[in-house]
Design a protein around this nucleic acid. Structure first.
Length: 289
DNA sequence: GGGTTAACCTGCGGGC
DNA sequence: TGCCCGCAGGTTAACC
C-alpha cells in the first residue's frame, strides 16, 4: 500500500516526467476518482503548465502555473500514476487520463479499489511555513520534511489518551505512516502497539521517532532503486520492501531479534503485528483496538 | 472537542 | 467447479 516512501517515489517520477509540461486534455473515466473535486476538474486543467511536484505525508500535488491551484492526488490503497505511450491500450482500472500539448507520454491515474482520488483545488490561505492545498491544511508535517518539529510531536503525542499505534496512524499528528511502517517502527523501537501514549517517556518517544524515520528512509531507498524511466510508481504495493519487514505480515515467524513467534492482533478492523518477546505490553494497559 | 467506529471498494484466497 | 466469506487498508463523516 502506498505510504510515504511509495508516494515520494511517485512524486520523483512526476517531477522527472511531467513537470514543465502543459496539459492538453483531462478525461475522467470513473466519477469516484474525482469525488472530492470541488468542480471543474476537466475544465480547469487544460492549458495549464504543471510547474512542480510536491508532497506531504501520503498526499502529493502538482502546482499549476499560474499558481492559484494544485492538482492534488491521494493514491488510496491501490492507486498508481503511470506515464507512458499515449497510444497504448487503456486498461479497465484507468480512472483519469491527462494528455499533454507536446504529444508526448500521457499520465494515467489507475486505481483498482477506488480509494484514491484526484482534485483540482486552491491553496490554503494560511498554512505557513509551507503552502498547502486547502483540503490538506489539517495534515501534519511528515517526519522527513523540514517543517516537522520533534518537540511539538512529542508534546502532542503524550497529551493524547490512546494507544501509540493509533496515534502513529493519525495523519493530523504525524503524516506519512500507514499500517505497515507503523508496525515496523514499533518493532524497531521495541514498543507494543497498544502502549498508552500518555505513559511514554521522552527517551521512548525519541526512540520511536528515530525508528519511524529509519524505516521510512530505508523503504525510500528501496523504492528508489526499482522503477524504470516511464513507470512512475513501482507497483502500488509494498512488494519491494517485503524482504526487509521484520514484523508486518509475519505472524508465526520467528522475531529476527529474539526468535519469539510474531503475533497478529485484530486492530481497528485490520491487523497489528508485534513480537510478544521484545515488545511487551505493560501490565494493566487499556487496549484500544 | 477528543476519541472511536463504520463505510467506502475490489480482488484474492480459503473453506465448503 | 463455484459460491460465500473474510481480509487487505486510508480517509472521513458521524457518532459517543
Amino acid at each position: 500500500m502506498p505510504e510515504l516512501p511509495e508516494v515520494e517515489t511517485v512524486r520523483r517520477g512526476l517531477e522527472k516526467h511531467v513537470t514543465g509540461r502543459t496539459v492538453a486534455s483531462a478525461e475522467v473515466l470513473h466519477p469516484r476518482a474525482v469525488r472530492r473535486d470541488p468542480g471543474g476538474f476537466t475544465a480547469l486543467l487544460p492549458g495549464h503548465r504543471l510547474a512542480s511536484a510536491q508532497r506531504r505525508g501520503k498526499y502529493l500535488w502538482l502546482t499549476l502555473d499560474p499558481a492559484e491551484h494544485a492538482l492534488l492526488a491521494h493514491l488510496g490503497m491501490s492507486g498508481q500514476l503511470l506515464v507512458g505511450d499515449p497510444d497504448r491500450p487503456v486498461s479497465s482500472h484507468v480512472r483519469v487520463r491527462l494528455t499533454f500539448d507536446d504529444g508526448g507520454p500521457d499520465l494515467r491515474f489507475t486505481d483498482q479499489r477506488t480509494f484514491g482520488h484526484l482534485a483540482v483545488v486552491p491553496f490554503a490561505t494560511v498554512s505557513a511555513p509551507v503552502l498547502l492545498p486547502a483540503p490538506i491544511a489539517h495534515i501534519a508535517p511528515d517526519p522527513l520534511e523540514p517543517a516537522f518539529d520533534p518537540a511539538v510531536f512529542a508534546a502532542r503525542l503524550t497529551r493524547r489518551k490512546t494507544g501509540v499505534k493509533r496515534a502513529l496512524l493519525d495523519q493530523s499528528l504525524i503524516s506519512g505512516v500507514g499500517n505497515i511502517y507503523a508496525d515496523e517502527a514499533l518493532w524497531r523501537a521495541e514498543l507494543h502497539w497498544a502502549r498508552a501514549t500518555d505513559t511514554l517517556k521522552p527517551a521512548e518517544v525519541t526512540r520511536l521517532l528515530d525508528a519511524v524515520r529509519e524505516v521510512l528512509n530505508e523503504a525510500l531507498v528501496a523504492g528508489g532503486t526499482s522503477f524504470d524511466s516511464l513507470y512512475v510508481n513501482v507497483n502500488g504495493e509494498s512488494g519491494y520492501f517485503d524482504r526487509s519487514l521484520a514484523a508486518y505480515g509475519r505472524a508465526g515467524e520467528p522475531c529476527p531479534r529474539c526468535g519469539t513467534p510474531i503475533r497478529r492482533d485484530p486492530f481497528m478492523n485490520r491487523s497489528a503485528f508485534s513480537c510478544p518477546g521484545c515488545q511487551p505490553l505493560p501490565r494493566g494497559t487499556r487496549i484500544h483496538r
